[in-house]
Amino acid sequence: MHITNLISQYFGKFAKTQFPSFIQTIINNGYVKFLGLNMSEFKNPKHYKSLNLLFTRELEIAREINTDENVVISPTDSLITECGAVKDDTALQIKGMEYSVEELLTYDCSSNFDKVKNGSFMNFYLSPKDYHRYHAASDFTLKKLIHVPGKLYPVNLKYLNKELDLFVQNERVILECENNGKLFYMVFVGALNVGQMVFDFEPRVETNTNAQELKVYEYENLEISKGDCLGYFKMGSTVVMIWENDSVQIEELLNQNVKFGQKVATIN
Rank of each mutant, 00 (worst) to 15 (best):
V187I: 15
S127T: 15
Y185W: 06
Y131S: 07
F184G: 12
L166C: 10
Y125K: 10
V168Q: 00
V155C: 04
V189L: 09
V198Y: 08
T207N: 11
M197I: 15
V194K: 03
K158M: 01
Q196F: 09
L175N: 07
L142D: 03
D165N: 13
G195V: 12
K158W: 06
L166G: 08
F167Q: 09
N161P: 00
H147M: 10
F140S: 11
L160Y: 03
Y134K: 02
A191N: 12
K143V: 05
S138F: 13
Y134L: 07
D130M: 07
Y153H: 14
N193Q: 09
F124Q: 00
N208L: 12
T207L: 12
E163I: 15
F201K: 08
F140K: 09
V155I: 11
N179C: 11
L157N: 13
P203W: 10
L157S: 12
K143L: 14
Y125V: 14
K158D: 05
F140C: 14
L126G: 03
D165G: 00
N179F: 04
F184W: 12
K162P: 04
G181A: 03
V194H: 02
V173E: 01
L166I: 15
L192F: 05
H147A: 11
Y131I: 11
H132W: 02
K144F: 02
Q169V: 02
S127E: 02
L160F: 05
E176N: 04
E206P: 00
N208K: 14
M186E: 15
N193W: 11
H135S: 03
L164Y: 06
V187T: 05
E163G: 00
L160P: 11
V189K: 01
F201L: 05
D165Q: 05
G150E: 01
N208F: 08
K182Y: 03
N170W: 02
E178R: 13
S138P: 03
F199K: 06
E163P: 00
L192M: 13
D130G: 06
F121V: 10
D200Y: 12
N180S: 10
T141F: 04
L164I: 10
F184R: 12
F121N: 07
Y185D: 01
T141Y: 05
Y131R: 04
V189M: 02
V194N: 06
L160Q: 11
A136F: 08
A191H: 12
S127F: 05
K144V: 09
Q196L: 14
V148W: 00
Y125C: 07
F199N: 09
N180E: 14
G181D: 06
V205A: 13
S138K: 13
L183V: 13
S138G: 03
T207R: 12
N180L: 08
V198H: 10
M122P: 12
L142Q: 07
Y131Q: 04
K144C: 06
Y153N: 14
D165F: 03
L157Y: 12
E202M: 07
L160M: 10
K158V: 09
N156L: 06
V198F: 09
H132T: 05
I174D: 01
F167E: 06
Y185G: 01
V189H: 01
N156P: 08
H147W: 15
E202H: 11
F121R: 07
F167H: 13
L152R: 02
A136R: 02
L145Q: 13
P154C: 07
E176Q: 15
E206T: 13
P128Q: 06
N170D: 01
F201G: 00
P128K: 04
N179W: 02
K129W: 09
